[in-house]
């Protein structure tokens, strides 16, 4: 697998920066891609490969979500990302922390973060911007 996975953000797609060396994963911006399948599937593939790799050589992982808006199809994929993160967090000796940033005036994003945490059954630290 590639050690680093990157998407440059646009007005309708997220900035994504996944680094297997540092264990820092960043998802930032707005998500309503024209083709959600071709946009999100490579992200899921990379995370699944990272999960396999982490079984033998784990580092601590910090996941930073700083989302402005995501549409209903992205909702599905972000939940899939959370489910893989849950699997990674269950690896022995693995420490994984998820930070979910939200605008204190925009409780919608906070509510969505709570939904993902609940449905993936994983702890999330909520941080008001």
């Amino acid at each position: 697998m590639e050690r680093v996975f990157k998407y440059t953000g646009t007005e309708s797609t997220l900035e994504v920066d996944l680094n297997s060396d540092s264990g820092k994963f960043i998802f930032k911006g707005e998500s309503r891609p024209e083709n959600a399948v071709t946009y999100f599937e490579p992200i899921l593939k990379w995370l699944k490969e990272y999960y396999e790799l982490s079984k033998t050589s784990s580092v601590n992982v910090l996941v930073d979500f700083d989302l402005e808006y995501f549409n209903s199809t992205s909702y599905k994929y972000i939940l899939d990302i959370f489910k893989i993160l849950k699997e990674i967090s269950l690896i022995e000796n693995m420490t994984l922390e998820i930070i979910w940033k939200y605008d204190a005036m925009d409780l919608d994003i906070l509510e969505s973060g709570n939904d993902f945490a609940k449905w993936a059954d994983i702890d999330v630290k909520f941080v008001a911007k």
């Binding site: 083709n35 959600a36 399948v37 549409n71 209903s72 199809t73 909702y75 599905k76 939940l79 449905w119």
Partner: peptide
């Protein structure tokens, strides 16, 4: 969201 699959139009019908 949890159980649906993406259809051929790239949506899951929850809009």
């Amino acid at each position: 969201i949890n159980s649906s699959e993406i259809d051929e139009r790239g949506t899951i019908g929850v809009g």
